[in-house]
Design a protein around this nucleic acid. Structure first.
Lengths: 225, 225
DNA sequence: GCAAAAGTGTTTGGGATACACCCATGC
DNA sequence: GCATGGGTGTATCCCAAACACTTTTGC
């Protein structure tokens, strides 16, 4: 160790990529920066992590205060994504950001102190810092998770139709899936079960409602459609 | 942001889980701690990351000095693993560690300033901090990588026999594989090609030597034996 | 009756699995 | 000639992929 010069740590920050579905499109939660740098640009919700707080604790505090998001109650899934640490990513000085990816459904943001909005991930505005690449990375991670876990429950209501489930997969993966194969495959996995309830809406046949068997994140072996 | 109280960042550290094969066993590089805390225990090579260095740059400096490992030249593969940040993991105070996992072959450590040794991952000594769980996590990551990338080249010589390749997979995954299926599968993937050379050793038939087609990390779609 | 989404089966090809014997060499 | 590890083929099963029509409802 280098005992000779006084040690100074980089600034430690946390940022969250929070996804939810609006309609059939995947959206990500952004806030508008009210200060320099990148004043007026959209950015991921995030902030500082001070000594004594874990990154997750810091993130919970910061999202609560700034964007009115309650990590524990509003999200169905949250995990650490990656740590971004290039020296130049923040023009004010070296800041290392530990990022998280999570998702929820019908999230209501209360008492945000910053301007916030949900943006479709396929048409993002100009973003501050390296946040655009962080979002792309997060979306890839989520898409990968869908293929080998029951993470889709994080984006859906408790009960859902198979069509809604399929369109969730399509929204995250960004491509269309075959209806018959999807249903056959998913039912054979044994992750979900029928409920007695039906979904009635519009001038067409009602749909059976299903629910996930397990509330926790469950890992399978591999592969999807 | 909280402008009112002076911000103090946690200490930022970096740690590396470096694997290589010795014989047919997977080994991990450890150093013996010469100071408190955990004096006398084995630990992952690591150290501080100061403002102005990326975690990777800091790791390169620290491994070079302490254990004589040259990240750029001694390793065939290195990637960020996870960031560990529980407040209690270091008894001296809050230290957040960005960890990396990598591997190489026949690594020669030169001019280490600390006591270093390669330990079989299946029989680890008592480890400092949370390093035992970090190693387990790293091994799982590496095993996963083997199933969908050509990461095995990181652990092998440039030229290798199919038996050596198979025993590499077995060492990392911790289970035995079927010889005929393994060879059939691997050759059909098109990741490797025959060389004109043969491996001669001992009182038995010589083996063809193969090499990977691509020097870079290459991702496949899925699944393995 | 018509528009709109729900629901349903079969065929085909390829990869995963399981399994046992001959080959080339050094001594 | 024997011990040692290298090298090879086939049968089976399951899963992925491709593909189109009938059912139920509201209006």
């Amino acid at each position: 160790m280098n005992y000779s010069s006084p040690y100074k740590a980089p600034t430690l920050t946390v940022d969250a990529v929070i996804f939810q579905l609006i309609g059939e499109q995947l959206h990500v939660l952004l806030t508008k920066r009210s200060d320099e740098p990148f004043k007026g640009d959209w950015a991921l919700p995030g902030g500082y992590c001070a000594e004594g707080s874990t990154t997750l604790e810091a993130l919970a505090m910061v999202t609560k205060r700034k964007v009115g998001l309650d990590l524990d109650n509003d999200l169905n899934y949250l995990e650490q994504l990656y740590t971004f640490d290039t020296v130049a990513r923040d023009p004010r000085g070296h800041a290392v950001s530990v990022t998280y990816v999570g998702c929820g459904r019908a999230i209501e943001l209360v008492q945000a102190t910053q301007e916030v909005a949900w943006h479709p991930v396929d048409t993002l505005p100009n973003l501050a810092y390296d946040h655009e690449s962080i979002i792309h990375y997060a979306r890839e991670r989520l898409a990968a998770k869908l293929t080998y876990t029951n993470a889709a429950k994080g984006l859906l209501e408790k009960k859902f139709t198979l069509s809604q489930l399929q369109s969730t997969y399509e929204a995250v993966m960004g491509r269309l899936l075959d209806k018959r194969n999807f249903r056959k495959k998913f039912l054979s996995l044994g992750l979900i079960h029928e409920t007695p309830d039906m979904w009635r809406e519009g001038a067409h046949r009602p749909a059976k409602l299903y629910a996930f068997n397990n509330d926790n994140l469950e890992a399978l072996s591999r592969s999807f459609d």
